[in-house]
C-alpha cells in the first residue's frame, strides 16, 4: 500500500471540546503505522505544520455555531475528497445544541458581562446540515478503534464496519447483566448506537446515550417503560437532552415532554 504520494489526512475543528481529536492521538501504537500510510497534513492538536490541500480524507469535529463556521465548512468540503464527521457535536450538534431549545440571547445576557461582543448563531447544528458528508461516526467521545476502522476502510476503499445496532448487543456480547431488567435502572441502551463497547452498564450504570440514536430507535416505547419504572417526565426529558439532544429521535421525544 505504501506509495510515494501518500493520501493527505486533515483534521478540522468546529465548535467542540477537542475530545474526539484526542481520540486520534490516543491511538498511540497505531499512530506510527498511520503516519506511514497517510500524510497528516492538517492536525493542529498534533502539529503546527500545515500542508496545503486538497485532502483525501477530512475528519471534522464540532458543530456549526457561528457565521464564520458556515463559510469554513463549505471550503473544507471543496478541498476534501471525503468528509467524515466525528463525534456528537459534528453529527448531532453536541451538548451546545441545548441552545436550540431556548433563546440564546437570553443565555448570553445571563452569562457574559458584555454580551454585545458575543457573535454566535441561534442554533448549533450538525455538519451534515450544511454539506454532504460521506460518513458520520457517532459518539461522545468517539471510540478510537472505530476511528481507526473508518480511516482503514477509506484507505482500502471498503465500507467501514460500524454497526448501527443498539448498545444491548454489546452488553450481551460481553455477558453484562441487563441493568434495566435486573436492577431496575433506567437505561438508554436499547435506543442508543453501539460503539462504546457498552461501558456504563458494565459498571452498573444505565446508558447515557453518548453515542446517539441507533438505527430505527423506538423512543416512545422506551420512555413509556421509564415512566413505568418511576421516572418523571422531566427526568426523561433531561436524560434525552444531553450530548445528542438535537439528534432527531431524541429531540422529538424530549420535546413531547416540554411544558
Amino acid at each position: 500500500m505504501v506509495s510515494d504520494a501518500k493520501p493527505k489526512l486533515a483534521v478540522w475543528k468546529f465548535t467542540s471540546c477537542d475530545g474526539c481529536q484526542l481520540s486520534l492521538l490516543d491511538c498511540e501504537e497505531e499512530l506510527l503505522p498511520l503516519a506511514k500510510e497517510v500524510e497528516i497534513a492538517n492536525f493542529r492538536e498534533a502539529s503546527r505544520a500545515v500542508i496545503k490541500g486538497p485532502y483525501a480524507l477530512s475528519l471534522v469535529e464540532g458543530s456549526v455555531t457561528t457565521a464564520e463556521e458556515v463559510e469554513r465548512i463549505q471550503h473544507i468540503r471543496s478541498v476534501s475528497k471525503r468528509v467524515v464527521t466525528i463525534g456528537a457535536c459534528a453529527t448531532a450538534g453536541g451538548i451546545q445544541a441545548l441552545r436550540n431549545f431556548k433563546d440564546v440571547q437570553e443565555f448570553s445576557a445571563l452569562v457574559y458581562a458584555s454580551p454585545q461582543y458575543i457573535e454566535t448563531l441561534s442554533t448549533s447544528t450538525p455538519i451534515a446540515q450544511h454539506i454532504t458528508v460521506d460518513f458520520e461516526l457517532q459518539g461522545c467521545p468517539i471510540n478510537k478503534r472505530q476511528l481507526l476502522e473508518v480511516i482503514t476502510a477509506y484507505l482500502h476503499d471498503i465500507k467501514p464496519t460500524i454497526p448501527a445496532y443498539s448498545v444491548c448487543v454489546e452488553c450481551k456480547q460481553r455477558g453484562t447483566i441487563c441493568v434495566m431488567v435486573a436492577h431496575g435502572t433506567p437505561c438508554l441502551g436499547p435506543v442508543t448506537h453501539a460503539g462504546c463497547g457498552a461501558l456504563c452498564p458494565a459498571y452498573n450504570r444505565g446508558c447515557y446515550g453518548c453515542y446517539g440514536p441507533k438505527e430505527t430507535p423506538n423512543l416512545v416505547s422506551l420512555s413509556r417503560q421509564c415512566r413505568h419504572m418511576g421516572m418523571s417526565t422531566d427526568q426523561i426529558r433531561r436524560e434525552l437532552q444531553t450530548f445528542n439532544a438535537y439528534a432527531e429521535p431524541f429531540r422529538r421525544e424530549s420535546l413531547s415532554y416540554e411544558k
Binding site: M1, V2, E30, P33, L34, K36, E37, L148, E149, I151, T152, L155, H156, I158, T161, P163, A164, Y165, V169, K172, Q173, E215, T216
Partner: peptide
Amino acid sequence: DVIDLAGEETERVRKWDSCFNLD
C-alpha cells in the same frame, strides 16, 4: 473483516447477530 492500516494482515470474526438489526 478486520484489516490493519497497512493492509498486511486481516482476520474474519464471527459475531452473534439478530434478525432485529437492519443489516
